[in-house]
Design a protein around this nucleic acid. Sequence first.
DNA 1: GTATCTGCAAATGTTTTGCACTCCA
DNA 2: TGGAGTGCAAAACATTTGCAGATAC
Lengths: 150, 150
Amino acid sequence: MAADTKNVSEKKRMAISEKLNRLGLKATPQRLAILELLDGNTSHPSAEEIYQRLKPVYPSLSLATVYGTVETLAKAGELQELNIDPVRKRFDPNPQPHGHFLCQDCGKVYDIELDFPKLDVPQELGEFLAESYSVNLYGICPGCRKKGRK
Amino acid sequence: MAADTKNVSEKKRMAISEKLNRLGLKATPQRLAILELLDGNTSHPSAEEIYQRLKPVYPSLSLATVYGTVETLAKAGELQELNIDPVRKRFDPNPQPHGHFLCQDCGKVYDIELDFPKLDVPQELGEFLAESYSVNLYGICPGCRKKGRK
DNA sequence: GTATCTGCAAATGTTTTGCACTCCA
DNA sequence: TGGAGTGCAAAACATTTGCAGATAC
């Protein structure tokens, strides 16, 4: 069991490592850790949250490195920066445009399915050239609605 | 001519003043100035830009007052705060949800028409209750495309 | 070996806050 | 006149930057 788990994360780490090299980026332990944390993560953490989660495991990790890494990865198209939260950037390992919902009660960001048409990007919109887009919703999430009903 | 212009802005100011009172807000010179500046303004200024524009006319105006005023007005539903620019909030006098385009070259924010369906808000989306939403596009604006082509 | 990357600390820029004073209703 | 609103200065955050030392390739 433990061996299996280890194999799985080994494999995952190797895949991430190769992906980084393919992008011309060095596969440093910090980058591996950040990408591994984000992989399949739907909590849309901020830079600070990523830092706090990894600090216990990589005590030498610096917040500036987290900022640098997510910026590099966003530019490489491996993840997206979300401007949904007015206070801080959030990061999403899924670089495809999709809807997000910010709960104004608990501050959590959720992926959300919309029947909005997908927009292919880059796309010409009149004389504007759109290279990416985002759909942000604001309101109350299911959990907070239940709490509110008390 | 000058008299007409004065009448027009007099009327406008009175309308704004009444609107504020209707909302239970005091019609202070600062609020009138901010609302008058924003009225019909499609440049989506930041708090700092509003402050810089009004400072020459109202030298005592404080940046904190600008922040307070736009927050109050946004809560009252009279304008909307845009989270499109990762660095600073922008303000739009049109409180209706509509598309925005941020030019990654010049930093200008444009209103944009989309054939995306309008979403009535508040709206139930599964168990989520959406109270507002925004569609943000990122790319290059017509002016910057022309410049880039040089 | 070397260009890239990291960590640290300081700087920057935006937004918020506390509080005394002012002024609109 | 009283409570809401303003201005000021300081504080609080999020993010960026410069640079010296470390390290992946």
